[in-house]
């Protein structure tokens, strides 16, 4: 177990180093334009730019710059944002927290909803309930977030006037402003998780031990809750963990659309403005979340499924 954990963590660090090298080559070697121009503006003189490059170490060899950058990164110094003219850490952490809040509520609604619908649907394959849930799930999943965001805005903001149109939280946290972004994310994602749960549930329902349990006269409710669910929910667990990954990209569209000040909007802003240090930090956070959630999923899976634990 400890070995597995160490292996996973080692793999995580390796992945991050590889990504950091790619990032550095892409962003710090002048491939995407002159950083000095971006900081000092278009009208700065060549002399000013040269001075800036010198001050910020851009005239040193790439290898040395990378080593320094990696060292700073490892010690928690994420650099200075061009756009925000301040430490990246000060910008990034509150934004990550905002996205965590959005993610929490999205999951808090999406997980129970999709599991319930998935289980209901998988309990009796081919029933009217199953068909309706499946069709509805496929329908919502096939509508991308940018389309459903427009649709929900048109309906709830411009039409019914029930909900605020943007979620900037400029007067402090307001739950009402969280509804639309969370709704868009939930509607897009629940269909997928529900379908996965349904498949897993349907498979369990055809297994021998369920048939035995039914045949020995246990009440149907008890068969489902005590025997079927436990096994049927192992597969969705992994799927749900992977959704954390998806969420990080999903929030870019949603946060941009609703002006929610989270990680996704920050990542987009960083890339549109070529804010190198911020972009690097965002990308590294994304890697940590991706690799981290996968590691967690693997570990969780071994706990839930004894067959893996003992093999």
């Amino acid at each position: 177990m400890v070995l597995l954990l160490l292996k996973r963590i080692g793999f995580m660090i390796f992945t991050m180093i590889v990504v950091s090298i790619i990032l550095f080559i892409l962003l710090e070697t002048g491939l995407t334009g002159d950083p000095a121009t971006r900081v000092l503006g278009n009208f700065a003189s060549a002399e000013q730019k040269e001075m800036w490059r010198d001050q910020h170490g851009y005239n040193q060899p790439v290898i040395i710059r990378y080593a320094k950058w990696l060292g700073n990164f490892a010690t928690g110094d994420l650099g200075t944002s061009i756009r925000y003219k301040g430490p990246v850490k000060d910008v990034l952490l509150p934004r990550l927290w905002s996205t965590a809040i959005l993610g929490f509520w999205t999951f808090a609604i999406m997980i129970p909803l999709s599991l319930t619908l998935g289980v209901l649907s998988g309990m009796k394959e081919g029933s009217i309930l199953d068909r309706s849930i499946s069709v509805f799930g496929i329908l919502t999943t096939s509508v991308p977030e940018f389309a459903s965001a427009v649709f929900f805005s048109a309906l709830f903001v411009f039409g019914l006037k029930w909900l605020p149109g943007t979620s900037s939280m400029s007067d402090g946290f307001a739950f009402k402003q969280l509804i639309l972004p969370a709704m868009v994310l939930v509607v897009y994602d629940f269909g997928y998780v529900a379908r996965m749960t349904r498949a897993s549930m349907a498979e369990v329902m055809t297994s021998q031990y369920i048939r035995s349990a039914v045949l020995k006269g246990l009440p149907y409710r008890q068969v489902i809750i005590r025997h079927a669910l436990r096994n049927a929910l192992i597969a969705p667990f992994t799927v749900i963990m992977l959704q954390i990954n998806w969420l990080l990209s999903g929030v870019i569209v949603v946060e941009f659309f609703f002006a929610y000040k989270g990680f996704g909007a920050l990542l987009l802003e960083a890339s549109l403005n070529n804010d190198i240090a911020l972009l690097e930090a965002c990308a590294m956070v994304a890697v940590v979340v991706a690799v981290g959630s996968q590691t967690l999923a693997d570990i969780g899976y071994t706990f839930l499924n004894p067959r893996i634990r003992f093999s």
Binding site: G165, T166, S168, S170, F256, A259
Partner: peptide, 21 residues
Amino acid sequence: IRFIDLGSDPGAYLAAIASKQ
């Protein structure tokens, strides 16, 4: 006076003024 940044999406500005934000 509160200056509220709604990003660079013109649609967000329209939605904000429509919902009196």
